[in-house]
Nucleic acid binder design. Structure first.
Lengths: 189, 189
DNA sequence: TTGTTGTTTCAAAATTTATTGAAAGTTCTA
DNA sequence: TAGAACTTTCAATAAATTTTGAAACAACAA
């Protein structure tokens, strides 16, 4: 087994076990990493053979990868067959993932919190007051994180160049959010 | 059912379903959120009753929560019983989680990548060259993200105040990392 | 030391999540 | 329109993860 095959195998395995972290299934993650390890795009049959997966599994996983914009389908010339090419702008890839997860997972939390807080105000008990305070702190923290994520999604992120922009933009965003929000949290911290 | 109980129920349920996102089991997440919703600490029996869990499940979950520093055990006076109080500095809570997950999940990836890249250099094929280039990009991205996370872990993060520090510190960190690293990436994007 | 109170452990059971594979569906060519 | 070449779907199956519960263990008081 040549060097590249050894590394490929380990890489695919590691990536597969990380799928959980990104919120995608192991198989889906393995397919993406396997495509990344190849210089040419691959079609369904090649993926099936390369990773020992069923046709259905490959189809499902590729659908997910397409939704996340992690792979690009291409027609193989002179055939109806579709081959997949992995997206290689990794920063964009991460942005895609963060954006989708934010929408699916964070946004609903903020909505719920904003619904619950006023509901707790109708309950006069001190227990409710403590609970409400904690939910408010949580709302505030998530809202501030949300601002940072929005900035992240707009610009180049992790690079040094993007950093100054990040600060300024995050500040603007936070200021805007705070102004729109109720003002009674100014003195806390 | 009073207002607080309704909200508590929904909150616990939501938090439980989010456990996956944080990499903790639903029960563990539910216990933490249930504690957050109460003004007083709770002992094993109260948690068991409040969330309809077995003794063993509560013990396991609380052990995990303790490891993550999400709850603090306290002796109930005049008894051997232990009651748990939730950590309420949520920013610190998030830092704890990020720190542990970084160590467990990210650090090993960087290590592996740094092992694989030189291995691929012994393979002269163009396929290996493409693969190696992608791994290098990945290494670079993760290393830069890592710098930001380190900064995040050191300071107040999400608040407006911490932001300026974040920029400066991230810049310093990145500069330091780059200098220590091999220099052959300077011109890349 | 013994009994009581409370906690932890871990193999087995339940639940959840991921994968398969065969059948149904789609698109293209002739 | 018929047939070939692929792709997608989804109920059934397999795998992984979570939870249980009873037994073992630990701490303390008498």
């Amino acid at each position: 087994m040549s060097e590249i095959d050894t590394v490929r195998k380990d890489f695919v395995e590691l990536w597969g076990s990380m799928g959980h972290f990104w919120g995608i299934s192991p198989t889906t993650a393995r397919i993406y990493s396997w495509l990344l390890s190849r210089s040419e795009p691959a079609d369904t049959d090649e993926i099936m053979e390369g990773l020992e997966l069923s046709r259905g599994a490959v189809s499902m996983a590729c659908r997910e990868l397409r939704e996340w914009h992690l792979i690009l389908p291409e027609r193989v010339s002179g055939s109806r067959r579709i081959a997949y090419r992995p997206a290689t702008d990794l920063e964009k890839v991460i942005r895609n993932i963060v954006e989708i997860r934010k929408r699916r997972e964070w946004d609903p939390i903020l909505e719920s919190l904003r619904e619950w807080i006023p509901q707790l105000q109708t309950d006069g008990s001190s227990e409710a007051a403590v609970f409400r305070q904690r939910l408010e702190d949580l709302e505030s923290l998530i809202a501030r994180s949300d601002s940072m994520v929005k900035v992240f999604l707009r610009g180049g992120v992790v690079g040094k160049l993007g950093l100054k922009m990040l600060v300024k933009a995050a500040h603007d965003e936070a200021t805007r959010a705070d102004t729109a929000e109720s003002q009674n949290r100014e003195t806390r911290n």
